[in-house]
Design a protein around this nucleic acid. Structure first.
Lengths: 109, 109
DNA sequence: AATATTTATCGTAATATTGCAATATAGTTT
DNA sequence: AAACTATATTGCAATATTACGATAAATATT
């Protein structure tokens, strides 16, 4: 098939999976790390930094934006992309909850 | 193409992407949540809980194990799968670092 | 030993993702 | 307005993922 049966799972499970999936590519991780490194946050910059074509990077940026991992606002000719801190806080609290719940369990392996 | 050009990125970027990718499917999120919910951690249990076929679940478990998100040990007839807390700690510290670095930046959007 | 139970693997079909060249769009500058 | 710059979209080829039936392998039970 190839299509994941998302309707079998809860909204929350699908939402967290979408976030993780968006982070599940080295180019997108590299984009995020570059956004953090530079002080401004234009996009053409990224094209010179990451060895992928402009359309490919544009596509990755679109995916990150769809997942609300980054925010983009038009800044004249170029676009200002930057980290969406709310989404990362959401991811952090999800991961934290897993760790906490796991610690409360008696481990069996 | 379809193949991600992982050699263009750093080992660290690829490693975190592999972890995130493994978490990027609702079935795998559901598996993790189920592992946390139950006290024991056998696998056949999961087949009854998640509406996917046994081979599909086995495949998802394999991916989670490959990414070191869960650990599995043979327990007689069945297998004891459980959360790998080290990996989740690793993910947490990566996300935390992103949040911290982002807070230190002067935001522009 | 025969049967049942549990998990893994193989083969395969359907769909999704990745990547890029070509092209489009939209703002900027001259 | 023409030329330039920055980003997005389209179309397409290559590869990856998802899912499952059939089957295998390995232990447990009778």
């Amino acid at each position: 098939m190839g299509a994941s049966k998302s309707d079998y799972f809860t909204i929350e499970q699908n939402e967290i999976a979408i976030l993780m999936k968006a982070l599940g590519h080295p180019a997108r991780i590299a984009i995020i790390e570059h956004l953090l490194k530079i002080d401004s946050c234009v996009c053409n910059d990224i094209v010179n930094e990451i060895p992928l074509s402009q359309p490919t990077i544009s596509q990755h940026l679109k995916e990150l934006k769809n997942a609300k991992i980054i925010k983009g606002s038009i800044e004249g000719n170029s676009i200002c992309y930057c980290i969406n801190d709310e989404t990362f806080n959401q991811i952090e609290s999800y991961i934290k909850q897993i760790i906490k719940t796991d610690q409360e369990k008696k481990s069996c392996c």
